[in-house]
């Protein structure tokens, strides 16, 4: 296995770079989308709230692979064409946004209504209260779920291989189809995912501790 790693690490690392790029863009953009969706669902008017609810239901209720195929293979029929990586990123953002919206909704609703009431009493508008008081608390509470989402996304991004985006899994498959050492190559690929994920989990735990506030987790 070591010899495979040594022989092919430039290709594998290039693939890993694409994997991380897809994951980072998808997850962070997904967070931004998720924030808007969750705020729309909780604080929006009936139309906005219902639209968001339906959107989330559709995205969470259909397989990611199907969504990816619709975007990459389906949309060109209507003149919309994306490069494989772009198509992958778009479908991952939409998917991650829908999931993150639900995580965020939970953490926003766990911030007591008294907090927003106190913000209003100082003369803040509802949206100022949401931005300066509710979200800073909700976002801290969502970090563990977000970490989970990021880890899922690192692994789910391997789905991009089916439309030929050159990420880690694709590079692995290309190497294996040339030297036929399927077991060894995929073991190396798996180990790379594992090491990267362990590193990220460690980083996020550190981040969570850094932004932690005394006693905050236990406040309701």
């Amino acid at each position: 296995m070591l010899d495979i790693f040594l022989d092919f690490y430039p290709l594998l690392f290039r693939g890993l770079g694409v994997t991380l790029l897809i994951t980072l863009i998808s997850c962070t953009s997904g967070t931004i989308l998720g924030i808007f969706l969750s705020l729309g669902k909780i604080y929006g008017n009936k139309l906005v709230s219902r639209t968001v609810t339906a959107f989330i239901a559709i995205i969470r209720g259909t397989p990611l692979l199907v969504q990816l195929f619709i975007i990459y293979y389906g949309l060109p029929a209507y003149g919309i064409r994306f490069a494989p990586i772009t198509a992958a990123v778009i479908s991952f953002i939409i998917n991650s946004g829908a999931y993150q919206a639900e995580y965020l909704r939970g953490s926003i609703q766990s911030v007591s209504s008294g907090q927003l009431k106190a913000a209003l009493s100082l003369g803040m508008t509802k949206w100022m209260g949401i931005i300066h008081v509710v979200l800073p608390q909700a976002l801290r509470r969502v970090i563990p779920a977000w970490t989970n989402e990021f880890i899922y996304m690192i692994k789910y991004s391997s789905l991009a291989y089916v439309i030929g985006a050159k990420e880690l899994m694709t590079e692995g498959k290309l190497i294996a189809s040339r030297n036929f050492q399927f077991f060894n190559v995929y073991m190396v690929v798996a180990l790379i995912y594992l090491v990267v994920i362990i590193i990220f989990v460690h980083l996020f735990n550190k981040f969570e501790k850094k932004v932690a506030i005394p006693g905050f987790d236990f406040e309701r």
Partner: peptide
């Protein structure tokens, strides 16, 4: 109303302090 609320302080039974 937001201008009025700036001129009238409110102290809550459960304090209403911002936890963060």
């Amino acid at each position: 109303i937001n201008q009025i609320r700036q001129q009238i302080g409110f102290v809550f039974q459960d304090f209403g302090l911002f936890n963060h």
